[in-house]
Structure formats: structure tokens, C-alpha cells
Design a protein around this nucleic acid. Structure first.
Length: 562
RNA sequence: UGGGGAAUGGUGUAACGGUAGCACGGAGCGCUCUGGACGCUUUAGUCUAGGUUCGAAUCCUAGUUCCCCAGCCA
């Protein structure tokens, strides 16, 4: 119809294609997508991009989205992975319509293979792996036909059945499509459909000893589910003619495959092979190690599903190979947590402060706002006393220019408390190390404001010595020390680019007492420091926090420039 | 050297023959009981060369550069 003259603007190219289909009636206005992972590892942030795209499109168009395990290789797949995948998809905030397995379709796939044989379009090949490679030719030279290419239909039928029955050892024969050994597209040079694999499958057990190749399973699985838009990554663009060839031969529903560029992030790796390597060789504590770009890792780190979804929306979808800066992801979680995370005071590297004019033994409760961005978050009480701890970084005996924090003779505000001024620096006579700061407080400034209207430049965070709780804080940084860890000279292991300081553990940070009630998964902003999340290792009385991301640090930037 | 793709500020991404915009980053300013947040200003781009057109990021031609493909992996 022509009643809609306004063009959809600002939508990604995939949605543009869907719009065209809806306009032309190609799929009768239906939209059915799917997210098809192989359960051979944990999902990562790159999968999140695909999940948001597939589920997002289904939602935008009132369609549906299936979750399907592409489980055609029993030697690499495990139920642990399928469970983790389902869990991660749900956690990201999506609910699939159909839950399927490519292995659900093994019978149908086998029937279709027989059909292809009967049409003279597939044959059993006795070539070894090496021979198949030789016969395939190269990118610039055509391949040559297998000597087994012209077996009779009857012989092929008999042989595939014997393969299925388990009469032949692994690798001894394959079923191949008969297409064109001279095709400039190598995927069409008689691709293997089935290989012999005497392996137990997580879903079908020992029913099969021949397994469909991905190329033989994927397109037809989409077809069976009547997927309309089969969205995948760029490297499958070369396979599309093959999938369409299968579907044309079989005369079944043909989805539209659309390829987009996979996500790459700086300072990390995204290949499942490399992530598995990190886990297996214990470079990290597991798939959910907070340094991992896995969904499980990001979750444990403290990322919110919203922040990941916002990130995916922010980066867009296109066909251009690209690398997104890690700072974009970090920015997404800061933006989300700024609105929601309660503020709290924690001192990571403490130095003691004694208020010489504050009565010994006295403790008072001060009101602290929980979240200046969210009035409904209310306020809490924090104890204040003669002995406190502040951050080592917040004191300089010889302050540089523009240093607004505590220094001899310089007045600062203690957040939600009083103005203090430093009078004496106590040092260890042996080492010269600063052990204590003697300060005075101004009782008139209770709550943080001076009745005489006097201003201070700096406000610093603190905890009261007697009431503070000890906590372990794990400071996470980039997994890799360079933006592109895959960029290594020939023969050099990419793992030489792992960041040795990706985890720095602070054993004895001091946190305000309200945090004793913090539960696993709770997120906070440690004021002026960063966003933190209670780790799964945390116990009552033995708190463990993960740094999700630091706050932007303007002072660090100024000081770096000086 | 075969085939398939992609090229817009530093990084991503819009514009669908008619003002090159947005986000992140960078620089600067304002505000602030977080050197946070927020607000404002600013920086910087159509791969190259021709052509069509009143007008081109967009259409045409020819180049250049980058990515993917030679698993019985997905």
C-alpha cells in the first residue's frame, strides 16, 4: 500500500529489510527470528548483541523469537553449556517462544539426506580427510571430482544406512552433496553433510553415530521452524548460496538470511576458543570470572542487564567490521548505576585521622543521603567519632597545585559531616612513613555547612574507626593490557597480552557499618571511588566486593597532565 | 591470482539526490556537600580519481584499502 509515505528513519539495516518484506508481503507480515548458539561454551557480550537484535526485532514487529541449540557436534557440547545459555538469555531479560535443538531434527535431516541421494544430489564418499582437502582445490584453482561421486543411488542408499548402523569407523566415510567441484565458492565444492562420529550426544544419547554438519543442519532447522529472518554474522555470507541450494532441492520454506558484523571490544578477546583456553588453563577463575567478557562474568562483575541492553542499542548494527572501545560498555553501566546505586562510604587504602578537639569516647550519628540522583532512596545514619580513616590519596603533605583535598593547614569537608583542618603529620620515626594525621574539626559545620558561609574546595569520604567494617575489595581492570590482544607477531602467543594487573585484591578496606547488611549481588557506589558489587564469595562478616567500574576521575587526569 | 563483503570525525553510527546529525572520546567553561552526576561551548568526517546533475555521502565508471572463505568446527 502507498498510504505510508514516511520513511522509517534511523533504523538499522536489518529492520530496514524487515520493513521491505512487510511492505511487499514476502512473509505475510510475519516475523519469526531465532537465537541459535552452539552449546560449546558460555555466552559472551558478542552474543548479547545478537540476542538483543533477534529478540528485539521479534518484539518490535509483534513476532516471535526461538532459542535453538545448534548442537550438531557431540564432541564439544555439554548440558552445562545449554543450561548456562538459557540462564543468561533469561537474565538479559528475554523470554524465548520456542525452545528447540537442532538435534530434535536429526530424523528429519536424515530423511532429507536420503531424498537428496535419491535425486542423485548426494553421495557417500570414501576419501580420507586429507584427500578431500586435496580434491577440493584452492581458492584460485578448481577442485576435481571424487572417484566415488558417481556411485549409484542404490549403493549410496545402502552405504549411508550402513554408516548410520555403525558399521564403519570414525572418519572412514562421509556423505557429500553433489554440487560443483569447480565452483568459485568453495562451500559449494561437494560439502560434507554427514561425518561418522561414535560419540554420545547430550540430547540424543547413542542413537546416532553419524552427525550432520552445521551447514547441513542450520538452514533446514530454520526452515523447519519457519523462521522468516535468519540473522547471523558476516562469515556466513559465503554459506548462504549453499543453504539456499539445500532448501531449493528440498522445496521447503526459505527464510531470508541477513548477515551483520559481530561485536569486537578493545582490551579483551571474544573467541570461544580463547575464552575456553583461559578457563581451562586457569588464567581466570572460571567462565564467570569478573574479568571475562562472558554474560556470566559481566553478571558476577556487577553489570546490570539494562546496561548491557543499552550498550547493544548504542553500538548499532551494520555490516562494517568494527571494534568498540571498552569505555563504551563501561559508560553504559555507569550511566545505569548512577541512577540506581545507593551511595556509601568505603576507604580502600586507609590512613588514620585523629580529631584532637573531638571528645574521646563520643559517637554521634549523622544523616547521609543515599542517592542524590534519587530522592526516594532516602537517607541513613553514619557514625562519627574522634578517630576516623580517610583515603591515603586524599592527603598530601606537599599538595600540588589545584589539589583540593587534605593537606597541612588546608580545610576540607568530610562528606555529610564536618569541616576538618590538618595540623600535624605523625610519622614512623624509623621509616618516615605517615602513620597518623592530627586534625581539628569545626563543630559549627555539622552536616557539612558552615554558618559563616565559608566554602571549602574539597569533600572527601571517610569511615569512623571503631564502627568500620573490614572488607575485601577486588579491583578489576581490563583482561588484556593492549587494545587489540590478537595483534601479535607470528609465533607469539596472544596470552602474552594478558594484563597481569587485571585483578588487584585489597584485603583490608574499611567500609561503613551499614554495609554489614549487604547481600550477594547488591550494587553500591563507593562515593568518589566507583561502583561495586557484593561477590558470590562474600560471607556475613567477611564481605567481598567487586569493582564493577571506577568513577570518572577528573583529578587523575589533571595530575597526569601536570 | 578465484569468489563473497565492507569503506562517513579518534571510535561507533545516522542521512535513502537537497543544511553531513547523534553517541562515546578529546579540549574548555559553568554548577556542585562525590574533582561524580548534570548543563553549555568546542574539536574533528563522506577512501581516491573521474563522470552524471542546478545540486552527490547517496547515482555511474575506474581504482585503492580492509575483512571473510580452501574443518569430517560452528
Amino acid at each position: 500500500m502507498t498510504d505510508s509515505t514516511e520513511k522509517p528513519r534511523g533504523v538499522d539495516f536489518v529492520r530496514e529489510i524487515v520493513n521491505e518484506h512487510n511492505a511487499s508481503g514476502r512473509f505475510g507480515g510475519k516475523v519469526l527470528t531465532r537465537f541459535p548458539p552452539e552449546p560449546n561454551g558460555y555466552l559472551h557480550i558478542g552474543h548479547a548483541k545478537s540476542i538483543c537484535l533477534n529478540f528485539g526485532i521479534a518484539k518490535d514487529y509483534g513476532g516471535k523469537c526461538n532459542l535453538r541449540m545448534d548442537d550438531t557436534n557431540p564432541t564439544k557440547e555439554e548440558v552445562e553449556y545449554v543450561e548456562s545459555i538459557k540462564n543468561d538469555v533469561r537474565w538479559l531479560g528475554f523470554q524465548w517462544d520456542g525452545m528447540y535443538y537442532a538435534s530434535d531434527y536429526f530424523d528429519q535431516l536424515y530423511a532429507w539426506a536420503l531424498e537428496l541421494i535419491k535425486k542423485g544430489k548426494a553421495y557417500v564418499c570414501d576419501l580420507t580427510g586429507d584427500q578431500i582437502r586435496e580434491y577440493r582445490g584452492t581458492l584460485t584453482q578448481p577442485g576435481k571430482n571424487s572417484p566415488y561421486r558417481d556411485r549409484s543411488v542404490e549403493e549410496n542408499l545402502a552405504l549411508i544406512e550402513r554408516m548410520r548402523q555403525g558399521e564403519f569407523p570414525d572418519g572412514s566415510r562421509t556423505l557429500r552433496a553433489k554440487i560443483d567441484m569447480a565452483s568459485p565458492n568453495v562451500n559449494l565444492r561437494d560439502p560434507v553433510l554427514y561425518r561418522i562420529l561414535h560419540a554420545e550426544h547430550h540430547n540424543t544419547g547413542n542413537k546416532w553415530c553419524i552427525y550432520a554438519m552445521y551447514d547441513w543442519a542450520h538452514g533446514q532447522s530454520d526452515s523447519i521452524e519457519r523462521i522468516t529472518h535468519s540473522i547471523c554474522t558476516l562469515e556466513f555470507e559465503n554459506h548462504r548460496p549453499l543453504y539456499e541450494w539445500f532448501i531449493d532441492q528440498l522445496g521447503i520454506h526459505k527464510p531470508q538470511q541477513i548477515e551483520f558484523a559481530r561485536l569486537n571490544l578493545t582490551y579483551t578477546v571474544m573467541s570461544k576458543r580463547k575464552l575456553l583456553e583461559l578457563v581451562r588453563d586457569k588464567h581466570v577463575a572460571g567462565w564467570d570470572d569478573p574479568r571475562m567478557p562472558t554474560i556470566a562474568g559481566l553478571r558476577r562483575r556487577g553489570y546490570t542487564p539494562e546496561s548491557i541492553r543499552n550498550f547493544c542499542a548504542e553500538i548499532g548494527v551494520s555490516k562494517t567490521d568494527s571494534v568498540i572501545g571498552m569505555n563504551v560498555l563501561e559508560n553504559a553501566v555507569r550511566e545505569d548505576l548512577n541512577k540506581r546505586a545507593p551511595r556509601v562510604m568505603a576507604v580502600l587504602k586507609p590512613i588514620k585521622v585523629v580529631l584532637t578537639n573531638y571528645p574521646a569516647g563520643q559517637v554521634e550519628e549523622l544523616d547521609a543521603v543515599n542517592n542524590p540522583e534519587d530522592p526516594s532512596a532516602g537517607s541513613r545514619k553514619v557514625p562519627f567519632s574522634r578517630e576516623l580513616y580517610i583515603e591515603q590519596d586524599d592527603f598530601r603533605e606537599v599538595p600540588p597545585k589545584k589539589y583540593y583535598r587534605l593537606a597541612p593547614g588546608q580545610e576540607v569537608r568530610l562528606r555529610w559531616a564536618f569541616f576538618i583542618k590538618c595540623h600535624e603529620v605523625i610519622k614512623d620515626p624509623a621509616t618516615g612513613e605517615i602513620t597518623e594525621l592530627h586534625c581539628t574539626y569545626d563543630p559549627e559545620t555539622r552536616g557539612g555547612n558552615a554558618p559563616d558561609g565559608r566554602k571549602v574546595q574539597g569533600t572527601i569520604h571517610w569511615v569512623s574507626a571503631a564502627q568500620a567494617q573490614r572488607a575485601e575489595v577486588r579491583l578489576y581492570d581490563h583482561l588484556c593490557k593492549v587494545p587489540d590482544p590478537d595483534d601479535v607477531p607470528q609465533g607469539v602467543d596472544w596470552k602474552t597480552n594478558l594484563n597481569p594487573e587485571s585483578l588487584v585484591t585489597v584485603k583490608d578496606a574499611l567500609v561503613e557499618p551499614s554495609l554489614t547488611k549487604a547481600a550477594t549481588g547488591d550494587r553500591f557506589q563507593f562515593e568518589r571511588v566507583g561502583y561495586f558489587c557484593v561477590d558470590t564469595d562474600s560471607q556475613p562478616g567477611a564481605l567481598v566486593f567487586n569493582r564493577i567500574v571506577s568513577l570518572k576521575d577528573t583529578w587523575a587526569k589533571i595530575e597526569k597532565k601536570a
